[in-house]
Design a protein around this nucleic acid. Structure first.
Lengths: 197, 197
DNA sequence: CCATATCCGGACGATATCGTCCGGATATGG
DNA sequence: CCATATCCGGACGATATCGTCCGGATATGG
């Protein structure tokens, strides 16, 4: 009663995923980020599919539920923030310039980011915690450096930077050049981060 | 063929709206603000009705469409901001303390505010423009005062304050005490608003 | 090049939300 | 207190979105 089955006790070697499938997966995730930031987390899946140029079936195949999709979006955002923090930390200049770099990168990412503040899920899972820890560690080292070289006040914490970074990525749809506006807030905030005279 | 009609060429004197109707109207608007900030602008009308403790019919009677409701929410928010600015301006202390008061009041309003940054409509109508002008005027006078008494840098604009105020009213659902976090950002920002030494 | 595992699009039944409408309840003016 | 203008709740038909499923297309390994 088990003829015609492949040898089923050996976990069948699966092919690598097809290239087109991986491409579509990326396209869906990128389109979903923008769509969620534009229309909210209840944006119809059909809209995301259309924006990504695929059928709804493809969206559901890669992300079986809206929850799974939103979780993937937030993980992706956390990875983007980790990368931004590490790039900022690799700068040569004083600590405050690393912070500036981090905030500028956050602005550049713009509507690609879907974090809890933007309506994304809270994600208490292990991977998210690890990514958050990464961000905290890297930013803390930047702040320490700034404190040593006298460019950052000593009571600043990584949470301050993370929160402000998320705040300025709120797009201001009715303002034509919101990037300029965001950069302006960064200037003032960085002055606030300098040691008190 | 016009007997039994009241004299119809005189614009019929309407009764005042009933008290219960006005109460319901307010309850709906307040519940809608919180619901929209919690679930986005696509939140089901039935949810808003349930939160307000009324039937859906009552919501649609006062606000015939979702668009009308969102517009009313944003008008209400603008009125709240106007009031906050004027209360801040009536303080006796130096200019920077007026700004602090304004930002603290914004935090207190929290999820009552539904502005374009929070997903609300852009509202280019006449009343909204007048309210925005009010806000700009009042904040500008505060900044001027601060510049004169030496507590605020001279290049700060009312737009800076408005935008930052809207930014810190983004709630951070995954953070237990987001008010504390917001107040912390205000401290740093206000230091950034002080004149450079 | 061929066999086939993998993937795709989108139709379709199920479910959710919309916005109206009306029988009954209630506040108001006199 | 009474007549009635005003208002209310929620049922209901219309419409929108969900998530599955399968016939056909396509990339891959050999």
């Amino acid at each position: 009663m088990r003829e015609e089955q492949q040898q089923s006790d050996v976990p069948a070697r699966r092919r690598e995923p097809r290239r087109d499938a991986l491409d579509n997966r990326d396209r869906v995730l990128a389109a979903a980020a923008v769509a969620v930031r534009r229309e909210g987390t209840a944006v119809p899946m059909a809209t995301i599919a259309a924006d990504a140029g695929v059928g709804v079936g493809t969206v559901y195949r890669h992300y079986p539920s809206r929850e799974a999709l939103l979780n993937a979006l937030t993980h992706r955002s956390l990875r983007l923030v980790v990368a931004a923090a590490e790039r900022a930390a690799s700068h040569d200049g004083p600590g405050i310039e690393c912070v500036r770099s981090f905030l500028h990168q956050s602005i550049e990412h713009g509507t690609e980011l879907v974090l809890p503040m933007h309506g994304g899920p809270a994600l208490p899972d292990e991977e998210a915690l690890a990514l958050r820890a990464d961000i905290r560690r890297t930013l803390t080292s930047i702040l320490k450096r700034g404190e040593r070289d006298g460019t950052i006040r000593s009571d600043a914490t990584s949470a301050d930077i993370v929160i402000f970074g998320a705040m300025i990525t709120q797009p201001l749809p009715h303002i034509a050049n919101w990037k300029t506006t965001a950069l302006r807030q960064v200037v003032i905030y960085l002055d606030g981060l300098s040691p008190r005279s």
